[in-house]
Amino acid sequence: MFKRVYYWIDERLNIRPYIRKEILDKPVQGKLNFTYCFGGITFFLFIVLTLTGLSMAIYYVPSPDHAYDTVDYLTYQIFMGKVIRGVHHWAANLMVVTVFLHMLRVYIHGAYKKPRELNWITGVILFIFVLSFGFTGCLLPWDQKAYWATKVGTEMPGTVPFAGEYIVRFLRGGSKIGALTLSRFYVLHVIFMPFITAVLLTGHFAMVRRQGIAEPL
């Protein structure tokens, strides 16, 4: 069945040579070891987070009077709720670890040097995005930990000279953390940031393909 669909598509678009050349028959280059896997593991976790996150978005309501209750509902009353939310939680934590190990390997091998500077830059931006995902996602259960973590976290840019107060206000959608902060963080967490991350990831991977994997020095 799958084969027939594939042949049907291939007959029209002639994709087989590309799939052969780029994926199936592509030789693995140079001396690689397990430390080269962390980037791939991070991407795998990104997919896991997308799937579990999309599933939870079906039940979650980002409003102060419903957020906590809907999280409670999707965790304890929906079939496999604990698992889906648990996997999302642990994959998110693990992602910070794997992305850091990936970065460490690139740094130690000097793989950020010319001509791969652009890949390093997109990588650093993606790293910041990973941390921002953690920060915005933390608020969504709308419990005490969420509230105070976000209060302290959004207070930090307040120390920036001159613009500090406005950055804080912009992040919170007002002077205090409330309904507008929650919907802001939600929409950043599930729409804006995943979209930008996907675009940056595409560039990140395309550049690896174009330039090849850097050999250790």
């Binding site: 409003s63 102060p64 009077d65 959608g173 007002g174 205090k176 409330g178 309904a179 507008l180 919907s183």
Partner: peptide
């Protein structure tokens, strides 16, 4: 009582 965006709540 505060008006938190669209949301009327006790603070």
């Amino acid at each position: 009582q505060v008006k938190d965006g669209w949301y009327l709540t006790k603070e």
